[in-house]
Design a protein around this nucleic acid. Sequence first.
DNA 1: CGCAGCGTTGAACGTATTCAAAAGAGGTGG
DNA 2: CCACCTCTTTTGAATACGTTCAACGCTGCG
Lengths: 243, 243
Amino acid sequence: MVAQHANALTTITDKLQSLGILDQSDRDALGSLVFTVNTAPANHDLVRQGEAATSLQVLLDGYACRYKITAGGARQIVSFHLPGDILDAQQLLLGSADHFVQTITSATIGVVPLAEFRRILKLRPNIAEALWRDTLIDASIYREWVLNVGKRDVTSRIAHMLCEFAFRRENAGLGPPERCELPMTQHQIADATGLSAVHVNRVLHELARNGLIAADKPEVKIVDWSQLCRIGDFDPSYLHGAA
Amino acid sequence: MVAQHANALTTITDKLQSLGILDQSDRDALGSLVFTVNTAPANHDLVRQGEAATSLQVLLDGYACRYKITAGGARQIVSFHLPGDILDAQQLLLGSADHFVQTITSATIGVVPLAEFRRILKLRPNIAEALWRDTLIDASIYREWVLNVGKRDVTSRIAHMLCEFAFRRENAGLGPPERCELPMTQHQIADATGLSAVHVNRVLHELARNGLIAADKPEVKIVDWSQLCRIGDFDPSYLHGAA
DNA sequence: CGCAGCGTTGAACGTATTCAAAAGAGGTGG
DNA sequence: CCACCTCTTTTGAATACGTTCAACGCTGCG
């Protein structure tokens, strides 16, 4: 438990340090944070639309996604999340959540009481700036997703999604994009790309036939990274170095 | 010219005040801002992808949009902008722009040197917080757009886009959603919804046939606001009160 | 062992695109 | 003031793309 806590602290500090310049006082403030470590099973909602947050959640291990649903019940995943990602920074300043956050795999989450974190923000503007920068990068990623879902043909669209995930996974220190395994189901890929699961299946097979990926069941593995980036029209500059 | 400057100051201060609590010192700091007022014709790029910003641009009059393009040249509009909107807040903290910003109509823009604005941000944390909140709302709007483009059927999708625009237009003090005229072409609506202009034309006619909108050439006018919201699955809570 | 979820495949269908062509509107210059 | 040019809107027809429906195999878990 102590080891887990130390680990969690490192994760948060590393994340914020990658987003802005922190001095020793900033790191001390982060070190003084009171927080707990929770675990959640796969497909478990961590944030529910309409609810106000009482804490700040940081993904420490496992994968998650954000999603929204239409009145008709159709679900659209709007982003994927990796260890180190802050899952509900928006609740720091906005009222209730406008979307859901759900685990994809089983996950461990660092939970900081909201009042506690707000206190730190007031005292340490560097930390607030780092979080603002994180929000700006999130917004940039959403823009790319609007483009991806709106204008790319299906092969390119799925390839782009895979590239983004593999790239961010590497940035988060989880291994190189080559031989990257993906934790999500084809149904989840469909929800993220605005397609049907059936069609995702066909396109993945097409990509596999062309030697870009390999079905390393039950997951998918990237074989030809540079080709996949070309097909997927993937240029990571929109990530602005995001972890 | 003096009148224009005073007007521009009011626009910026009102915008920030709607996003957070400003005290007198904050307002004084904003009042001390050195800036100029420019005009731009319709369809003119105000921000170009890949370029670093040297100034902060605030839309004072007219309409604008953000867009991205694929390697194949397809264009996707990712947001619309109204008077009061800050057009390149992201450049405050990120490096180069990851997208374009273009005028839809002829427009007037308030331009603040970036160094000048950064100075204010360091001194006035309330202003930084208001801008962060603005970024969070932007991100929420992008999420809704991913859902809109990814999962809504065409009629609903176009209706939602119209509702969002009319709603924000009212919030910006430009008149009620009923009898709201839209400044964009059908081609621009197509670029925003991920459709072809031909099909947008057909759907707009369908909406007109059902008495939801009226073709008040060359623009489109909303007739039955509440029905359009229903058809468009439009719930403004994701705008978090954005102007 | 049986159930549930995920992946896979085929066939029919429907929606939106593409192509093409023409009419309307606004602006410019002669 | 009119003629012309361009951009936008409009319409029809053929086409292509992705969905839907249905069924089955596989895997992991209770």
